[in-house]
Amino acid sequence: MPPITRTYVKTALVYLVLALMGGVFVTLRPVAQLVPWIAAFTPLYFHFFMVGWVTQLIMGIAYWMFPRKSKQQPRGSERLAWAAYWLLNLGLVLRLVAEPALTLTPLALWSWLLILSATLQWLGGACFVANTWPRVKEK
């Protein structure tokens, strides 16, 4: 298993644990009505599960197992794969900070951090697709 895949899979496992902990946290909402920002964790819970766990696991395994691009670059560009990893995760972490913070204090800073989070995650997805597309081919 290449180092990038190990990093993707281990990070995905961390997100799985965090997502399920988030799920527990979200269930506290009816008994913790004094904490309005708990509601902001519901979309985070879904996205930590679907992006942090499912999508990231797929990205790591696809990098490892998909058909070779060429003899010179069997797995495509290592730089693009790392870029996808950092962009996606930085975007997710920014969302974890900015989304509940915006519920607490409507500062422009949090709004712009959310936009930055959206942009980084989109770019991460684009890097993954750009690197994977040439490897999806008939034998």
């Binding site: 969302r95 712009w112 989070s117 942009t119 989109w122 997805g125 993954f128 597309w133």
Partner: peptide
């Protein structure tokens, strides 16, 4: 290939939805 296209379109809509929460 269809799934990769859907990933990008889905991410694009997701980015718009998230940005819309900010501004």
């Amino acid at each position: 290939r269809a799934s990769l296209i859907y990933l990008m379109v889905g991410f694009t809509l997701g980015a718009l939805l998230l940005a819309n929460k900010g501004v």
